[in-house]
Design a protein around this nucleic acid. Sequence first.
DNA 1: TATTGTTATACTCTATAACTATA
DNA 2: TATAGTTATAGAGTATAACAATA
Lengths: 149, 149
Amino acid sequence: MAAQRHYDELARQLSAIGAVKRDMARILPHDCPAGSAAVLTLLARYGEMRMSRLAELLAVDMSVTSRHVAHVADRGWIERRPDPADKRSRILHLTDEGHRQMTELGTRTTQLLADRLSDWTDDEVGQLIALMTRLRDSFGDCRTTRTPA
Amino acid sequence: MAAQRHYDELARQLSAIGAVKRDMARILPHDCPAGSAAVLTLLARYGEMRMSRLAELLAVDMSVTSRHVAHVADRGWIERRPDPADKRSRILHLTDEGHRQMTELGTRTTQLLADRLSDWTDDEVGQLIALMTRLRDSFGDCRTTRTPA
DNA sequence: TATTGTTATACTCTATAACTATA
DNA sequence: TATAGTTATAGAGTATAACAATA
């Protein structure tokens, strides 16, 4: 249990971290906004999956997922195959074009972070990742409203 | 210098942290969106300041700052006084109503974080804050475009 | 009836550019 | 000329609700 002062400061850091995200978004190709890049990244890492699983990993509503997926499908980076086990569902997987796009995205991201985090050790980056991961876990599945305003 | 695998993972965590921010935004009063809350929080912590300084702390463009400030000023939470030293500038400061609103925001934020982070120690929260602060420092002032897409 | 996914709509946040006023 | 701040506009991201198809 932490002090209120720490809570306020954490809230502020969360608010300000958006600037970092926007800086990273600037290096993306013009036809591949952050939402599309996130879809490609998750499919590349975890392999084919259905919409609902992707929405869970993206931590957004499935309606939002549907829009992002439509965008990357329109560009030929993924395919939506019918799920033989459930005709309501669709199985998403990267195309060859999608893999090429991922390679491009990975190169750009690595270049940017290597520049910005040049004085960070591997261990320090790992600590930050671990704490951010735990933070997300502590908040659970935030897509479902819990405390209406 | 960290490995590419860590870079990819950090990029992913930054992308997913938005769910935490949205969860926190849900507890705000209906007429006080996240942008307004950020303005009030910074003025409460650092005291009166001009627009340009606030934009720097918010880590957004001054045009965005201007909009947020207009919103909170319309509700009587802050006042914009002329700067005697520079007639182009305006000095922002919280009103009594603004202080009351801040108390309300602080209460809600603390309640939410005390619930979500009940199993975090004070030191752990401090570590996360320190690493996020350093991350922002490493990215510098991201409001100015550096690498056009 | 419940679930998977899509679409329409509305709202928040953001940056760019054009503009006014002052330094 | 340069800077502080405002406003208009456009774009990305998100959630809610209504809907269609299937379980």
